[in-house]
Design a protein around this nucleic acid. Structure first.
Length: 511
RNA sequence: GGCCCGUUCGUCUAUCGGCUAGGACGCAAGAUUUUCAUUCUUGAAAGACGAGUUCGACUCUCGUACGGGCUGCCA
């Protein structure tokens, strides 16, 4: 049986998407593209309590920044619209009732308080309360209440939920594309809530199965935290009579905190010393903010490349992958089983690799907004050139200004260590002489300037290091930066002279 | 606690019974360099433990330990 590949990314809008979610979306996307299928975006907002305004927009913008394209779903539309579960409300009740009618589910009237009490009681005895075959006939459920009583309770407006009637002692045999064959005994499982009358909304389990079926999803690729509910999902497909079209499942290894203490979560914010979100986020309720990869100066291609390799590998030694290359190389059976700790240093390395591959036009586009923030108006050509000269030293795009500001702004202070070493003895006089040499140069290209200056220093018997470092002190102010002839060419003859005059006038020789 | 999943260098990983266990990040040393970087070379660094299967186990089986997930009218 081969059917059209249709996968979905189905986040819950309870806050910003974290990088684990992005990776899940990415693997879904790669799988869809690899097999010529469709990528859907469904918003699972069935928990009215945890809904966070702005989260959906954030998710969409994040995917867009990452280059993960949605073929069908929220923000795009499609044949199975709507794709927001809160807008599909009326669909689910019917299915919940169908399950009750078929004996696969039942009404339960326990209040949250009663359940809390039962849990507390069990805990006191060192037990864990489970809502299952052992207790369901002793509780306020349609399994033991009379039909009249059930109807009366519903009619009078008592709140109820629909629970799945988990069979007793049955071994559910499941197959996972990543983990292989998995078996679980239903006696260890409990009767999950499928539908809640309080807000007339299904829970994840029901909505998920119904929507995946209705939307003709062929493969469910999701985090490993869902593995324990797989038997329930299998049983739901069976209860609905949809086993023939039940999707294949793949449970991805979790992304762990770098400290090793559990799975990465939204609450980690950026307290780990690196962003856990793709984009900057401001909480609409608390006003709290969290850093994002985009704002921190990462290139989306580098970010994606890094994420792709966290839990998957191509089996070759290739490390740098464009999205297209990822699509071509991706396969679920090369996804690893063990959780992966996120490693911030590697993300930086990827970014540095991608940054140096940028051409001047791309560099200018990235650098111009940063320059403007610093009050520098310049041409795209010069912005691109400045960034290009220094690009091998850039890790994050936010490094750019620190690394290249001297191209645009003359130094006002001089690094003490370098000044102590260079601004003494004959060096000030030597620099004054070099000023005249520079003034005399007609063709100020770096190649020509270098020829002239080298000839001069050889004739004078100066050492290259001495001259260059003193000149660096005058033009850059610090012991860093590109080759000095890159600097002279970039800032031009007049600016060179001006900066030399500046240091001679303002910095007293050391001794 | 119960159920489930996992376990190769510090980290991400390769190895699908024959290994001198490979690569990458990071780290260290050296070389190149007008500074800082880059680059290049080299190095240190791993099969959780115990049984079994086998001519042979990192690879298969079982147990133990450890890690993780789930155990909500959250997803």
């Amino acid at each position: 049986m081969s059917r059209e590949v249709r996968v979905r990314f189905a986040p819950s809008p309870t806050g910003p998407l974290h990088i684990g979610g992005v990776r899940t979306a990415l693997y879904n996307y790669l799988f869809a593209r690899r097999h010529g299928g469709k990528m859907l975006l469904r918003i699972e907002d069935t928990d009215s309590q945890r809904f966070v305004p702005g989260a959906e927009e954030y998710i969409i913008e994040s995917l867009k920044w990452c280059g993960i394209e949605i073929d069908e779903g929220v923000g795009v539309g499609g044949p199975h619209a709507p794709y927001r579960q809160s807008e599909r409300k009326d669909i689910y009740l019917k299915y919940a009732m169908q399950l009750i009618d078929a004996g696969w589910a039942y009404y339960a009237f326990d209040t949250p308080e009663e359940l809390d009490a039962l849990r507390a009681e069990a805990e006191q005895k060192g037990d864990t309360f489970a809502y299952n075959f052992k207790v369901r006939e002793q509780l306020a459920t349609s399994l033991c209440l009379s039909k009249e009583e059930v109807e009366a309770r519903i009619a009078r407006g008592d709140q109820w939920v629909v629970r799945f009637k988990m069979p007793e002692n049955e071994v559910v045999k499941m197959d996972d594309l990543i983990r292989g064959h998995v078996e679980m005994n239903t006696s260890t499982l409990d009767d999950k809530v499928l539908y809640k009358s309080a807000d007339a909304l299904p829970t994840y389990h029901l909505a998920n199965i119904v929507d995946d079926h209705l939307m003709e999803v062929s493969h469910v690729i999701r985090g490993e935290e869902w593995l324990p509910s797989l038997p329930l999902h299998y049983l739901l497909y069976r209860a609905f009579g949809w086993e023939d079209t039940r999707p294949e499942f793949a449970h991805l290894p979790l992304l762990l905190k770098p400290t090793g203490g559990g799975k990465l979560s939204k609450r980690d914010g950026d307290k780990m010393g690196f962003p856990v979100f793709p984009l900057f986020w401001t909480s609409p309720t608390t006003g709290e903010t969290a850093r994002g990869y985009r704002e921190d100066g990462y290139l989306p291609e580098a970010f994606i490349n890094m994420l792709a390799l966290l839990g998957w590998n191509p089996g070759t030694e290739q490390e740098i992958f464009s999205m297209q290359e990822l699509v071509e190389a991706f396969s679920l059976d090369r996804v690893s089983k063990a959780g992966a700790r996120f490693q911030p240093d590697k993300a930086k390395w990827f970014n540095a690799q991608y940054f140096r591959a940028l051409d001047r036009e791309q560099l200018a586009a990235i650098y111009q907004p940063i320059l403007r923030e610093h009050g520098i108006e310049t041409s795209d050509e010069l912005a691109g050139k400045a960034a290009d000269i220094m690009k091998e030293r850039v890790t994050l795009t936010t490094d750019l200004w620190d690394l290249t500001s001297f191209f645009f702004v003359a130094p006002t202070t001089y690094e003490e260590k370098l000044a102590k070493k260079q601004w003494k003895g004959d060096n000030p006089a030597m620099l004054a002489e070099l000023r005249e040499v520079l003034l005399s140069i007609e063709d100020f290209s770096k190649e020509n300037t270098e020829v002239v200056v080298r000839a001069w220093l050889e004739q004078k018997g100066f050492s290259l290091g001495q001259v260059m470092n003193t000149l660096r002190l005058a033009l850059v102010g610090e012991g860093k930066g590109p080759g000095m002839f890159d600097v002279t060419e970039f800032i031009g003859r007049e600016e060179c002279v001006r900066r030399i005059d500046n240091i001679i006038a303002n910095l007293k020789p050391m001794e």
